[in-house]
Design a protein around this nucleic acid. Structure first.
Length: 387
DNA sequence: GATCCACGGGAATACACGGATG
DNA sequence: CATCCGTGTATTCCCGTGGATC
């Protein structure tokens, strides 16, 4: 039996289908339950939350640092653990005598500014977390929602409200949050964002925790954990190192590369990720791309537009007009709406406008072509998994 | 209790107009 | 001038609530 035959056998026994055990574990927009390698940051946030364990509401806290440092992962994981802790310990003490009363314990809320583009949605999101009753999504005025939150907080021992991705949407920036924070008594606000809060609202935040970029070895650990959970054969240490060094401390970029490498391996029919697949992934990645999570947080119609945009042959998307035409033909939206969306998506950084070289027939202004500013392949793969 | 309807907010749509550029 | 770009905004549609009315 020669080498080619041996390889052929292996291929039959372990096909590319077996390569990925769980795409979700590779998803750059989803956090693992337990953040990897962020112990010291977690400690510092816990320090700031210390008053909770004496039954008091802590002071406001700003968690900030560059993209892909695990800020969201840490806070989300912490909040969910705290929720469990407080609910369990309290109910163990009180349920028997008080019939599961929930109003007498500190509550936790989390809202993602990416998905809450207006004050109304933000209030809705917060209230939803604070009250056990369900909150109507429509038909309730913004003022009414605000009042309900105030009432909810007034009679309680307090709440910790975390607002993630502060500064990513215009509607919810640091400034509007500080006014909001003063409006509600009895609540501690945790803001999570990229920029240092002191430049935006001096004095508002009593405490802050800066989250530094991952060091290479931490990133290698993170990639290894993800690869072990998501890929049947994992990745080699050298491959993880290669990706980590390239990603330069950004966990999001690193995970996009890992995800892309897995896709590349599967395309070429490999049962495990080879060095060449990692090369392809790094080659395909664009350095300052928009995180996939932001794309996946867009409204359904906008995601559909992005999805179909890159299915259109290049020749048919030379101008925004023709691009919008082609997309509209494949969707329920009209051309004008698609056009509107495209301009907005470009404005928000999801797409890049590129001047075409050719001048239009009969002269005039040169057309604009749209290029992605996000990991398209990863986005499409994740979208197809949702169905 | 069933029905009606004003109200609230968001998304989609349409369109106009100013601007850039060859 | 022709042609396309880019944006502001008014309008329409939709969905759901909750109080008034039958």
């Amino acid at each position: 039996m020669d080498l080619a035959e041996r390889i052929a056998r292996r291929r039959v026994n372990s096909t590319a289908e077996d390569l990925v055990a769980d795409w979700e574990k590779l998803d750059p927009s989803v956090h693992l339950d337990e953040p990897v390698g962020r112990g010291s940051v977690l400690e510092r946030i816990l320090d700031a939350m210390e008053p909770l364990f004496r039954g008091e509401v802590p002071s406001n806290l700003a968690v900030w640092g560059p993209q892909g440092t695990g800020k969201s992962a840490i806070v989300v994981s912490l909040l969910s653990t705290l929720t469990d802790e407080f609910t369990e310990s309290r109910s163990r003490l009180y349920t028997a005598t008080r019939g599961g009363e929930t109003r007498d314990r500190v509550r936790f809320a989390y809202a993602d500014a990416r998905r809450t583009s207006s004050e109304h949605k933000l209030y809705y999101s917060i209230l939803e977390h604070l009250t056990p009753e369900s909150v109507p999504e429509r038909g309730i005025g913004t003022e009414t929602l605000r009042d309900r939150i105030a009432t909810e907080l007034a009679g309680s021992p307090g709440a910790v409200v975390a607002i993630d991705h502060v500064g990513e949407s215009e509607a919810i920036d640091q400034a509007s949050l500080s006014t909001m924070a003063t409006e509600f008594e009895n609540a501690a606000w945790i803001t999570i964002g990229r920029s240092s809060p002191e430049s935006l609202s001096p004095g508002e935040m009593a405490a802050q925790v800066e989250v530094p970029a991952y060091r290479t070895h931490e990133l290698i650990d993170l990639l290894t954990v993800r690869a072990n959970r998501g890929l049947t054969a994992g990745v080699s240490h050298a491959q993880a190192r290669r990706i980590a060094e390239w990603a330069d401390g950004d966990a999001h970029d690193a995970l996009v590369a890992l995800f892309t490498a897995a896709m590349a391996a599967r395309e070429s029919g490999n049962a495990q990720v080879r060095d060449a697949d990692v090369d392809v992934a790094i080659d395909r990645a664009s350095p300052d791309a928009v995180p996939v999570g932001r794309v996946l947080a867009l409204s359904e119609n906008r995601q559909t537009v992005l999805e179909t945009l890159f299915e259109i042959p290049e020749g048919r998307r030379e101008t925004i007009e023709t691009t919008a035409d082609a997309i509209a033909a494949n969707s329920s939206l009209t051309q004008t709406t698609v056009r509107r969306f495209l301009y907005e998506l470009a404005d928000d950084g999801f797409l890049e406008k590129v001047r075409t070289d050719a001048t239009p027939p009969g002269g005039g202004r040169r057309a604009t072509r749209l290029e992605p500013r996000f990991p398209v392949a990863v986005f499409r793969q994740l979208r197809s998994l949702e169905r």
